[in-house]
Each structure stands twice: as C-alpha cells, then as structure tokens.
Design a protein around this nucleic acid. Structure first.
Lengths: 172, 172
DNA sequence: GGGAAATAGTTCAAGTATGAAATTTCAAGT
DNA sequence: ACTTGAAATTTCATACTTGAACTATTTCCC
C-alpha cells in the first residue's frame, strides 16, 4: 500500500526564528518525508507492473522470482536459513514459497549429510531454464519502466541511496 | 520481498561494436536494473523499519496507517471506492482494512443518502487523535532513516522520480 | 416503465508476510 | 549418558493483497 499521507502542517508555522527557511530542520524533515512518499509510490507502481507482467507472461509471481534469482546466483543451492537471510524475509515465509516452487518443479530440496536439521534448496534444470527467460524479460520491463532515466541519473541516484542507513545494513 | 537478482551477463559480451561502452544500450539497461534493485532494497528496508515501529509503538500496521492518512486528509470522509483509488489497492483489500479499523474504533461507516450502494468512511474523533500522534512519530522515523539525505538531494531525487512513467500515472 | 449497462461493495480463493510457538536435531559440558 | 542450550525448520494465527466472481443498486436509453 501507499502511505499516501502528506506532510502535516509544520509545528513551527509561518515566521521562522531560526534562520533561512530552507536550512530549517522542519523543512528538511518535510522534504525527506515528501521524498519517501514519492519513492514509495514509484516503487509500488513499478512492482505492480512487474507483478502483472510475471503473472500474465509467466504465470508466476515476484516472490517466486526473487527466490529463483537467489538460487540462480548460488547454483550450488542454499539452506532455507541462508535463503531467508538473503531475501530478508521471515523463515516461515520462505517455507511456503519454496514449497510452491517445488510443486512447480522449479526447485528441489536436497538432504544435507551430517545435519538432518537443515535442507539444501536448489534450482532444477527446468527451474534454471525458466528463470533465465524470466530474468531476460524482467530486465527489459525494468528498462522500459525506467525509460526517462539516463545512465548518469541512475548512477547518481544509486550513489545517494547507497549512503543511506537503510542500504548499509547487514547484507551478504 | 527483495528481487535480489543481479544483472546477468550482457547478451553483447566484451567487444562492443556500437560505440562507447557507456553509451551502449546494454550498459544503460544494466545500470537501470541495478538502480531498480537498489531502490527496491532501500524501500523495502525502510518499510520494514516503519512497520516494526508502528507495530511496537502503536500496535498498528502500515496499511492501517495509509488508510487513516487518506481519511485524515479528506476529513469529510471518502467512499470505499475513492479510498481504494487513492491508495491504489484493490477494492476487496480496502474492505478488510476498514473493517479492522472500524473494530478498532478509529473509523466509522456512514450511509450515503440517495445511494444505497455506497458507504462513506470517516475517521472518528479517536481515530483523528491517534493518527495525529502516529503521523508525528512517522515523520520522525522517516527523517531519521533518511539521515544522510540533504534537502538538495531530496529535491533532486524527487525531480528525477517525478519524470518516471511510474510516477506520472492516473493519480488523485 | 423496463431492461441493459454501469457503479459500489463484499466475498472468495490463493498467495504473501510476519512474529511467535513448537519440533527436531545437533553440540557441549558435566 | 544426560541435560542444557543453540540451531534449522516448520507450524500457526493473523493480516495484507490481488484478481475474479457475485450481489445490490443506480443510471441510461429505448
């Protein structure tokens, strides 16, 4: 959903006693909020279009795509554990998605010798083939959706986002 | 979820016969994909933190917050219809969220005279009070999460996002 | 006026998502 | 060996989300 709330009235109204308006903390906070709302709206919109494309053209979904993408990168397979860390979603969530991918024949579970708690999850050959097609299409869709963005823009925004607390988290 | 896929190998590999690499279509496409993945990751991360905050501090959720925000802006109330258009979510979705907000006492349904199909949905006094608190906190959280973003940055990214196909859609 | 089309909502099935509890297995320490 | 604790997953309750089917009401048009 959209978080369609707009900045409320400033707590420090008209006359600002701290200095230039544009250097004001209130103003900066409002501007960041506006930015966040716009980022959210754009992201949601793009996600919706990608989801629709995946649904219509591949009878698949974004979560499935995400899981397959992670497994495609680690072609030796991942433990459920690692998968959920990689995708930053809850453990139980991954269980369900993988379950459906197994039903689809795109993914297989492999027992790990020496640890009967864990399971390895891996793309099947069919899964790899399907994902390769999906990924190619996906890149095309994104490219089209970000039509107005030049390479410089992309690079610039990327840099700005990169410094954010939200982007510097525990990845890997 | 995350769409953690990285750009695959370029279809046009090393030697590029079309001109400078940075002006290459392939390269631009990859750069846009990279940008999209980063936007998605940052957005998801911020959303996750906001959701957590709402849960812990207000025992609420983002969808509830979004609905309340929309109703706060239109203090006369909105029809379910308008609400779902405003938030860009499905009709049935809004039904459920409003239902829970009604249970919470934050929202009330009001019959519309002259059209027995539609219902008006409005924040209660309690709902307005609660939302005012939540919105203040929310702005603070966003402000903190976007800590590294200057006012110029915010403005710049905002402008770039603004031109996107995804942002120019049927709003309001 | 009467019926087709449009509009407003709810309901439904399936999938996604979380956080918490429960289960099974492993790893130590005693 | 035994128990305690950690680790890997699944299960569960709840909630969100979509797209489609369904109901009820209104509007339009002949």
């Amino acid at each position: 959903m959209s978080t369609e709330c707009q900045p409320l009235e400033p707590a420090t109204p008209a006359g600002d006693s701290l200095g230039k308006e544009s250097l004001n903390k209130e103003s900066l906070s409002k501007e960041r909020l506006r930015l966040w709302l716009r980022m959210l709206r754009v992201t949601r919109q793009i996600e919706a279009e990608l989801r629709e494309k995946l649904r219509v053209e591949f009878d698949s979904t974004l979560p499935r795509f995400d899981v397959m993408a992670a497994l495609f990168r680690d072609s030796d397979g991942l433990k459920m554990n690692e998968l959920s860390k990689r995708l930053r979603v809850s453990n139980g969530n991954v269980t369900g998605i993988v379950e459906r991918l197994v039903d689809d024949g795109a993914v297989e579970r492999i027992a790990i010798e020496g640890d009967r708690r864990a399971t390895l999850v891996r793309l099947t050959a069919a899964g790899r083939a399907t994902f390769t097609e999906m990924a190619r299409a996906h890149e095309g869709w994104v490219n089209a959706l970000l039509d107005g963005v030049t390479e410089d823009d992309a690079h610039h925004i990327g840099e700005l986002l990169h410094g954010l607390p939200a982007d510097t988290g525990e990845r890997q």
